[in-house]
Design a protein around this nucleic acid. Sequence first.
DNA 1: CGACACATGTAACACGTTACATGATTTG
DNA 2: CAAATCATGTAACGTGTTACATGTGTCG
Lengths: 199, 199
Amino acid sequence: MSIKHGLLALLDQGPRYGYQLRAEFESRTGSTWPLNVGQVYTTLGRLDRDGLAQPDGEDDEGHVFYRITDAGRRELHAWFDEPVSRADRPRDELAIKLAMAVTVPGVDVVAVVQHQRAHTLRMLQDYTRLKMRAADDDLAWQLVLENLVFQAEAEIRWLDHCEARIARRDLTAPAPAPLPAVSDGAPAVRGGRTRKGRR
Amino acid sequence: MSIKHGLLALLDQGPRYGYQLRAEFESRTGSTWPLNVGQVYTTLGRLDRDGLAQPDGEDDEGHVFYRITDAGRRELHAWFDEPVSRADRPRDELAIKLAMAVTVPGVDVVAVVQHQRAHTLRMLQDYTRLKMRAADDDLAWQLVLENLVFQAEAEIRWLDHCEARIARRDLTAPAPAPLPAVSDGAPAVRGGRTRKGRR
DNA sequence: CGACACATGTAACACGTTACATGATTTG
DNA sequence: CAAATCATGTAACGTGTTACATGTGTCG
């Protein structure tokens, strides 16, 4: 969805061709999210199919241009108007991982948290290093980078918070006793009614 | 990827059947990320195909159980061991939206930022309200909720930051002059070499 | 000439979402 | 009985990722 609308936004500034769109997209996100060229062409195909953009002929150099349609402009401005809601966002893998880690016995949650923390911290340093490379007038790239910085900082704060929480829990419920690694057997939870016939 | 590993983590606690897996998955994420049942079955099929889990017969009530394999356990612990990197994460739609909004003329960026801010603030309030509903001993759900809170707070801070940045830019480069909404025509950017033959 | 960037496309595959089909059991 | 819940699955569709095929122009 982001690519589709991103390309529409670029096309709104005038006809573009595939390779050019990819370059402009990446320049705005500072190649933070590299975009496969193939995807640009398939997305352009879909935009055409959905009536949001149209092929607009080739220039003297053979570049295949696309032009945004009126429907495309409506779609684009609808995108700008409505906020991104949580429902639009994919499940956060890290959150799920920790939710599972604190549940499954035999997992060293604290180690998981600390590995992740170290990794995120390294990424944070990369971002601040990248920020020096970004041109002063390149607002788009700067905002994207700062977004990553803010998110990474929040993640680190959350991880610290998790560690404290887990420590607190492990104090209350003491020795988890290092089991023989795997507990297989009868399921602990089994709510449900009877059922027999199927299909 | 999160679902696959999430189910593996649940299966690591003993054999489960589809419907049960969905219930346990959602209880851990506090139904923050509702999981379609159908997806559980297709994912179980893929786990089977990839040798990470196996059907383990039916019980007297007709429930089709699955069991994690050794390969599945290795995969699961590899997942816990390696941190989720930025490359694993999908592109942030909001970041892309703002990067585009500050670039495309004729878009009221400040309005976009403020709408999003209001929306995220509402979500933040929902989360804190939900947090009161979470049981004291349900650490997994609490951590997930707090993750959402931390992320939302970071987003709001970033949005405020964006607004300040944009205001600063609009001072330097003054009246953007409300153009007739759309600028169509010759592309402004056109780097590239000549090319003629294709296919 | 050979490597590389430019440029357009296709095919295969993985994953997620929604909707649908089917049937049993429980509860009001 | 009717509606809701439990339970298992399939089909269709959208999107994203990777790899491949193909060819031109530039530069060392």
